[in-house]
Amino acid sequence: MPQSPATRHRTLVLSGSLREGAVTTQVAHAAVAQDHPGHEVVLAAVLDQLPLFNEDLDTEPAPPAVAALRAQVSSAASLLVLSPVNNASISAALKNALDWLSRPRDDSPLAGKPATGLVIGYHSHGAEAHLETILRATGARTTAAPTPVLNPRAVTGNRTVQDLKVTTAVAQALATLHAPDPATPA
């Protein structure tokens, strides 16, 4: 019997690339397109709508794009965070989104949220470690992805949704997020 949408594990995918045709965006769409029994995967709002983080703007009510993203994260059971490698780290757009999502400090939508990340680049230069460090600093509960780095040369252009390396890496990352928490009794 299929699960009702209310009982499905919902994972929100954050793509740190703003370019529509970017490999990172293609990987995000591939994650959404895959069939994940018992697991609903949805793409987060576009990050280019967020203002640059500024504590003067961190007010109640929050800027509309910030409030919308915070609501999406709050309603998700977990996060799959994707970023291109930019100068040996994650993208500025993703870092900005994570800065907004880490607030308010005492009630952040990231606090305790299971999250894993994948970086996409020819050489990661440790960007996957930066992503995990930033996620932990925001209060997210991180789980390392089995394949934390995807080389864009391995991606078959506009056929990313069917690319075996991409689908395998995404499926493995999602499986780590959907796995039962060993600290929680059954």
Rank of each mutant, 00 (worst) to 15 (best):
Q3V: 13
A6Y: 09
T7F: 09
T7V: 06
R10A: 12
L12R: 04
V13F: 06
S17H: 09
L18I: 14
R19F: 09
E20G: 02
G21N: 13
A22L: 05
V23R: 08
T24N: 14
Q26K: 14
Q26L: 15
Q26C: 09
V27L: 11
A28Y: 09
H29C: 09
A30I: 06
A31H: 04
Q34L: 14
Q34H: 10
P37K: 08
G38A: 10
H39Q: 14
V46L: 12
V46A: 15
L47P: 11
L47H: 09
L47T: 11
L50H: 10
P51K: 06
P51R: 07
F53P: 00
N54S: 11
D56Q: 12
D58A: 15
D58R: 12
P61F: 11
P61E: 06
P61Y: 12
P63S: 02
P64T: 07
A65S: 03
A65R: 00
V66M: 11
V66W: 09
A68C: 02
L69M: 05
R70P: 02
R70I: 08
R70T: 06
S75A: 15
A76Y: 08
A76D: 03
A77K: 13
S78Y: 05
L80M: 06
L82T: 06
S83L: 12
N87Y: 10
I90T: 13
S91W: 04
S91E: 02
A92V: 07
A92N: 08
A93T: 01
A93K: 01
L94M: 10
D99W: 04
W100T: 03
R103C: 03
P104G: 05
D107L: 08
P109L: 07
L110V: 01
A111G: 03
A115R: 01
V119Q: 08
V119D: 05
V119M: 11
G121H: 00
Y122P: 02
S124L: 01
S124W: 01
H130T: 15
H130C: 14
A137N: 05
A137H: 03
G139D: 00
A140D: 01
T143I: 13
A144R: 14
N151D: 15
P152S: 12
R153P: 01
A154S: 13
A154I: 10
G157L: 10
G157E: 05
N158E: 11
T160M: 05
V166N: 02
V166P: 02
T167I: 02
V170C: 03
A171R: 12
Q172Y: 06
Q172K: 11
L174W: 02
L174V: 05
A175Q: 13
A175M: 12
L177G: 00
L177W: 01
L177V: 03
L177D: 01
P180L: 07
P180S: 10
P180A: 12
P180G: 06
P182C: 09
P182Y: 04
P182A: 08
P185M: 10
P185Q: 10
A186P: 00
